[in-house]
Design a binder for these strands. Sequence first.
DNA 1: CAACCCTAGCTGGCCGGCCAGTCAGGCTGG
DNA 2: CCAGCCTGACTGGCCGGCCAGCTAGGGTTG
Lengths: 204, 204
Amino acid sequence: MDASVRTPERKLAGDKAQRIIAAMRSSVGARGASGSTFDQVAQEAGVSRGLLHYYFGSKERLLAEVVRHDCDLRLAALEQQLARADSLEAIVDVLVTSLEAFLDQDESDDPALIYEMFSASRHHEEMQTEMAELYRRVREQVGAALREKEHEGIVALRGDAEAVASILFALADGMALQRLSDPGWDSREAFAAGALTARYLLGG
Amino acid sequence: MDASVRTPERKLAGDKAQRIIAAMRSSVGARGASGSTFDQVAQEAGVSRGLLHYYFGSKERLLAEVVRHDCDLRLAALEQQLARADSLEAIVDVLVTSLEAFLDQDESDDPALIYEMFSASRHHEEMQTEMAELYRRVREQVGAALREKEHEGIVALRGDAEAVASILFALADGMALQRLSDPGWDSREAFAAGALTARYLLGG
DNA sequence: CAACCCTAGCTGGCCGGCCAGTCAGGCTGG
DNA sequence: CCAGCCTGACTGGCCGGCCAGCTAGGGTTG
């Protein structure tokens, strides 16, 4: 009963497990969930194929782990940005800038990852749960941040804080879908309209 | 050079081709694009597996055909609804009602179809083109309808008509993603905020 | 200190099954 | 009778999961 290996969670903190998660994450972004094979992912992670089963048991569980990991990273980054914003304009700017950064990531960190995961989650129980959790956390945490801003008098939300958070993310997801579907689309007008909409939702 | 079979398009108008498209459409909704096999689709369409290749040549081309078909149907339905709406409130109502209907379809007509197609399109040239075309048409046609409404003095758009159309669809897509990810989510507050947002975009 | 474990992390060949695409030929209406 | 529609057995390749066994290093024993 010492601090050594005991729970599965302990194992996944190791270097190799993290490399596997990172490799799967990048592979799903590039090739999709069903297009990502244990063979390729193992090779990219620099481990053997068997190790993927050793750590995660099944492809589904590895994918669920990738979702959780990705959600953690993105939420933390956004929340940090939001915390700094001390005016309505600053918040809108954080939202717009985050979306633009999200869409212009380099290849190893494909924005389509999250939508691949959404599709995959529709056919796997564990991933379904993980995706539901993801959006729930987003709404709750960003909602809480917005409520805080409202308390400080920076914003005057046009509705329930979590509902506003939900709408803001819906907007961002929807814009991302359109931009990813048609990379050649000139989205400047739409971005402007989106920013205006966000400003309205925050009380501007 | 008569009216008989000549182009591939002519062939696809036939009964069996349409049954195949319908079966693939429902299968992709239920099982995803990569989870849909020619075997099952052929069986559900009541034709042999070979016929799918005979008509469409490859899975990718069949999927592209499904996207085009689905887009035609949905756009036509929405445009018809919009044409009838003769007040700002009526338009918002059409948008909200359409989204709710979209989300509450029966199983043979899964709303997730479009997002499965989005994922699939990221790995297939022809589908990529088809998806870009889909969103382009949506923006153009709904944008044109909105411009018309503006001309009639019913709405006062908060930006370029196509940009507003784009934002409205982004909103709907994003809400759909959240609802589909977490069916248990109580989205009433978010729907209310979404309707408010739509009203604002239309000048209300 | 050396010989001997013994465990846990790790490996990769193998298996059973699946799947898109091919093709040789059957069928039928004109 | 034949052209074009249609069929389904077959092919070759791929993939997730399984598992028998390898290896390193810490502990134990003589």
